[in-house]
């Protein structure tokens, strides 16, 4: 191969990669985090009840039911679900800041499960796939501040920020994964899927045993780190804007409740966790036992539509009781 051939071929490769990068960027312009931020943007100037959290909140908080319940008590409100699946408190902080910057938020509902409030796992650049990819483009300075990157991950993070093909690699992988699943399902019995994929995959997110779960509770209690820095940041931002915060222990599948939440370690953890939340100026609401019917869940973790409606109605009733006239805002 001549030197000229190599040079022209290299230039052509770069050209094709630049075009592919533009295409990926364009395809990702409607990614789930961007959709969520646009949903927040499109709300009116006042959001009375803002739901923030991961997929439990995304599927469990039904703003229509919340609005309907408030309306039935003679108080029309605007409720908005900014829950985003497969995210951590860091993304929740960014979404909350996004909402607080542009809107007057009256009440923030933060849904969590297990030890999510205290989980402060250092991130690696390779972890930032799927919805975590929003850390590349939505307030990346917060990712740098909170993620505890090693210097190599920091360099990779800053490098990936310049290329949509790297930032949104999770979108490409998701398409490849869908193709793999479609090919694997040829000639096989149809597998059940829900909004987030295969329900059995979410079993992988559960603790392997009650002993492991209790150990994690004890570790957090020993360290006393109930609220991770991003959660503390979220509470501080909300408190500074005068937003009432309610931290909700989300309804869990009866199996999860029986296996983990009935353990003495969780009882003790919950008591201390609640104290930590209340010390930071937020209210704590235990809704973990609110939905005892298995049929109202779509997998071991997420509520189905009927469960979400029931939870949201009960939540709205509690909010009305807790603040007989404080939550609403006239438009």
């Amino acid at each position: 191969m001549t030197r000229r051939t190599v040079l022209i071929a290299s230039a052509l490769s770069v050209l094709i990669l630049v075009a592919a990068n533009l295409l990926v960027g364009r395809a990702a312009s409607n990614s789930v985090p961007r959709q969520r931020m646009r949903t927040i943007d499109s709300a009116g100037p006042v959001i009375d009840v803002l739901g923030i959290g991961n997929s439990l909140m995304a599927t469990g908080f039904d703003p229509d039911t919340v609005e309907r319940t408030f309306r039935a008590s003679g108080r029309p409100i605007i409720a908005l679900n900014a829950g985003l699946g497969a995210t951590n408190p860091l993304e929740h902080l960014i979404l909350a800041r996004h909402a607080l910057r542009q809107h007057s938020v009256k009440q923030l509902i933060y849904g969590f499960f297990d030890q999510q409030l205290s989980d402060d796992v250092p991130l690696k650049n390779s972890d930032l796939i799927g919805n975590h990819a929003m850390l590349y483009y939505a307030e990346p300075q917060l990712a740098v501040r909170y993620a505890q990157f090693s210097w190599m991950d920091l360099v990779a993070f800053q490098t990936y920020r310049c290329c949509a093909m790297f930032q949104e690699r999770g979108n490409i992988w998701a398409k490849v994964e869908k193709m793999r699943r479609a090919m694997a399902s040829v000639g096989m019995p149809r597998q059940a899927t829900n909004q987030f994929g295969r329900p059995e995959d979410f079993d992988l997110l559960e603790f392997v045993s009650p002993e492991e779960f209790s150990k994690r509770c004890r570790d957090v209690m020993r360290a006393g780190t109930f609220l991770s820095p991003p959660i503390q940041g979220l509470f501080q931002e909300a408190n500074a804007k005068g937003v009432k915060i309610t931290v909700v222990e989300m309804p869990m599948h009866p199996w999860h409740v029986k296996t983990f939440y009935d353990l003495p370690a969780w009882e003790e953890f919950r008591r201390l966790n609640r104290q930590a939340v209340e010390r930071s100026g937020a209210a704590y609401l235990d809704a973990s036992h609110w939905i005892p019917e298995e049929t109202k869940f779509q997998d071991h973790i997420h509520l189905g539509p009927s469960g979400a409606a029931q939870f949201s109605r009960m939540l709205a009733e509690r909010l009305i009781q807790a603040a007989p006239s404080g939550v609403t805002a006239r438009r």
């Binding site: 497969a86 799927g130 690699r169 999770g170 490409i172 998701a174 987030f196 995959d201």
Partner: peptide
């Protein structure tokens, strides 16, 4: 497109 996937399962928001 085909390498580097590190999670146990690819979480897809359908």
């Amino acid at each position: 497109a085909f390498s580097g996937q590190s999670s146990k399962f690819i979480y897809i928001d359908f």
